[in-house]
């Protein structure tokens, strides 16, 4: 019995030199794009480089460009994205390609650090717990963006990242906004300064590609809009000097 197959074009190489290489892969039920890439590496071409860990949409390490759109390959069924019996898999956009489908995430995470997207506590173990009501407006703003796992899909989607190398990107700014709304955080002003600038929140065009593509259905554009308002108010008071 001959099994049904389909053609997968996979990027081989790096930013400088590379090409798409075609592979014939057997079609299977409930097959994900990560299954396909894994099949190619294990059965057809062990030289293929790619990155994954959890396989179930928790770690965010397997994001790639599938038929032109950045996605988590582990949570993308072939049946949902296959076009005319073909699949094209490339590395994430806007990041340096190490080899084949593996990208260097250094810039992405450096920008989180640059946006001061880390919690700055002000209390000690001797202080009581902060009491934050789930109904609190700021808590709700923070909760809306808190589930980001740093997969880089929004960063790869964003045209502003492509145009402006300084731009911190949707994920870092989204994280900064959740911290601005964290009752316990004490790094507010320093963080607002960090996210305001030619590479900061004001650079966002509100195109909402990040909203369209975020696998966690977050809304980084709304978070960035929050940062724009917060930095504008702080600038009016002269707090961003």
């Amino acid at each position: 019995m001959s099994e049904e197959t389909f053609t997968v074009s996979v990027w081989r190489g790096d930013d400088e030199v590379g090409r798409y290489q075609d592979y014939e892969v057997p079609r299977m039920e409930s097959q994900t794009v990560l299954d396909v890439i894994t099949y190619i590496q294990r059965r057809l071409d062990p030289n293929l480089s790619y990155r994954f860990a959890c396989r179930v949409g928790v770690c965010g390490s397997c994001a790639m460009t599938v038929n032109g759109k950045p996605r988590w390959t582990c949570r993308t069924h072939v049946s949902k994205v296959i076009e005319d019996g073909r699949l094209e898999v490339a590395p994430l956009r806007n990041l340096k390609v190490i080899k084949d489908l593996s990208v260097d995430m250094t810039d992405f995470f450096d920008k989180w650090a640059k946006a001061e997207a880390r919690f700055v506590g002000g209390s000690t173990r001797h202080d009581d717990f902060a009491k934050v009501s789930p109904d609190d407006k700021r808590r709700q703003e923070a909760s809306a963006g808190i589930e980001c796992i740093g997969c880089g899909v929004c960063y790869a989607t964003c045209d502003v990242v492509a145009w402006n190398t300084e731009y911190l990107g949707p994920a870092a700014l989204n994280r900064a906004w959740t911290l601005i709304n964290d009752e316990r955080d004490t790094g507010r002003l320093s963080r607002l300064k960090a996210v305001s600038g030619t590479g900061g929140c004001q650079a966002c065009h509100s195109q909402q590609g990040c909203v369209e593509r975020c696998p966690k259905h977050l809304n980084p554009t709304a978070s960035i809009a929050g940062l724009k308002r917060a930095t504008a108010m702080a600038a009016l008071k002269g707090e961003l000097k």
Binding site: T106, D107, D110, K111, K114, T165, E166, L192, K193, A194, S196, G197, T198, G199, G200, Q202, K228, T231, A232, A234, A235, L236, G238, L240, K241
Partner: peptide, 23 residues
């Protein structure tokens, strides 16, 4: 690595420019 601009942007000025453009 992330490139640094020759003229570092001023957070206060950038936020005020943004506000001026919106108003």
């Amino acid at each position: 690595m992330i490139e640094e601009t020759a003229v570092p942007s001023n957070p206060q000025t950038e936020a005020r420019l943004w506000l001026a453009q919106r108003v």
